[in-house]
Design a protein around this nucleic acid. Sequence first.
DNA 1: CTGAAAGCGCTTACAG
DNA 2: CTGAAAGCGCTTACAG
Lengths: 349, 349
Amino acid sequence: MAEHFGIKQIAELANVSIGTVDRVLNDRPGVSKVTAKRIKDIIKKSGYQKNTVASRLKLASYKKIVIAVLIPEASDNWSFWKMPKLGIDRALEELKGLGVVVKYYSFADPLSFAMESAKIIAQDYNAVISVPFFREESNSLLQRATMRGIPVVFLDTEVELDGKAYFVRQNSHNAGLVAARLLRGLVGNDGSYFVVNMINARGPHANNQQRENGFREFFQHEPNGSEVVIKTINHPLQSTFEVSSEIATWFKKEGPKGVFVTNARSFLLPKIFKTYGVKNTFIVGFDINDQNKACLLQNEIHFLIDQKPELQGYSAIKGLFKYLTEKDDSELGMDIPVEIIVKENCGSV
Amino acid sequence: MAEHFGIKQIAELANVSIGTVDRVLNDRPGVSKVTAKRIKDIIKKSGYQKNTVASRLKLASYKKIVIAVLIPEASDNWSFWKMPKLGIDRALEELKGLGVVVKYYSFADPLSFAMESAKIIAQDYNAVISVPFFREESNSLLQRATMRGIPVVFLDTEVELDGKAYFVRQNSHNAGLVAARLLRGLVGNDGSYFVVNMINARGPHANNQQRENGFREFFQHEPNGSEVVIKTINHPLQSTFEVSSEIATWFKKEGPKGVFVTNARSFLLPKIFKTYGVKNTFIVGFDINDQNKACLLQNEIHFLIDQKPELQGYSAIKGLFKYLTEKDDSELGMDIPVEIIVKENCGSV
DNA sequence: CTGAAAGCGCTTACAG
DNA sequence: CTGAAAGCGCTTACAG
């Protein structure tokens, strides 16, 4: 086993040409059962490992691996969706010379998602990366891709779909648990807690619900956790946060208040708290955007949870490459870690 | 610029053979100044990018890139130094087929470090990865490697050395800042703080000092921070933690107490606190080892800071490969992030 | 059903 | 100083 086994060595041992070995290795037709068996045995014994790099070298020039990426539009004032692209480009750079290409599509609503999906399916890509914001439309994309044998990787959010898809995203339930841990440390036992969901016209987002569930579950495992009061505030998703008189009353309560904002707009809260003179609040939110970061630096937000969208994009491409070239999908199932960000470690991330 | 530029296309444009282009690209001698100039211009204009994968293909079989790794021994009850190896092996797996090989050496003290260094230098490796625990011996290694044009990457710890070395490690000063932020949130203003350094016979470790400095600096920027009392406890590094009557008195003080353990043995503290009936303590330590993890799960330790040793090993190999094959050292200067670990996110890391 | 040859983009002796 | 050829480990038409 010490020496090196390549396709050539296998061929010699089996007394066949390397072409025949290649056919067996790649399950191509046209090999008699007996020779196939003989070659397979030798492959197994030899511990042969395909040299992926060599196998892609020729193909890189005329048989690209083309991956369609369908993600939300990134606007100038909302750059979150530029992050996965950075990770995708970084992966592409590493895979330079191996013939991997990405084609970007974007969507803004279920209709555009469906339309772009149709374009993608019509093109016969080698794989699809998307974001499952709309269950019905995502199902449709998944099913049509699966029918053609095209793997689909979803970023950002995990939802249950009818079929086998890969998810490269943070576990939102765990993120909720972590958020609760962090707030609990700051607020203590006799404070009050708030979960702030910002909901768009299509109803609550899966991530937000999973995060809230995790947050609430944390307290069930705490001593006296059942006595902790957690108010949920469902607020429309818009560029301001307004407070009803009822909510204002809650916020005016004495004692420390822990506020868990289940999306990336926690930066809307400090303003309101100032306006209403609400004191003694601790905020945990998501994502390192400019506004959140500014609040973190001002000590108006205390923790952010980073979903590492750059890493999501990177992992999806690297994982798909491994799957497509080596039939190994082990890198496509991994959780993205729940990364805790404070003022002092938000810079170099 | 749309078409693809390889060595062949350049050769055609310059009316020379690919051999000559190769000489120019790799600064090999034997090309007349005029043709060299002409070819260089074309290379620049064309935006030519070397296909690293192709360039390694042939060499992978007989001209390996061999990297020496000299790190502390990992023992059964102290497995920290197995982690960088895991990362190194993961990087090697990604670079499979490109002819990258690692040879491991280990050390336990300055003497064995020096002896293994000598072996490494005698072998003429392509690069060296090590850990700069001993300044004098590290300097010697660095200088001898530099004389031979061999790059050196140090993991874990940054120290000032006489010469140019790369450091792939967490910024310990920032880690101290983060630790202070975390404890400050739990302890509040009227608590007391302790920095626990565990020091071996050779004196304090650079990381520990940098962490303590960062920790103390945090409070200087805080309002009323100068009034905060921070006691430093220097304790010998051993498998137990014993408390002098003076320290016991400090610990017995009323009010919440924040304890920052600047190494991986924060798990020694909870035991002592139980023995002495010390209440209301909050502990931040380093590294996810089994004992620390157990304390985290018991809520006896509140935060751990992960140095991501696996990632350090991985990054060192990937960065060195890029440097050795593309003369690009951009991946060798990056900080490893200061990762905050609580009970709820320590599992999947 | 099987083999021989060409080629991917480079690097390396070797020849001139 | 420069070029032509062989080769790295695979894949792919093409020939038999």
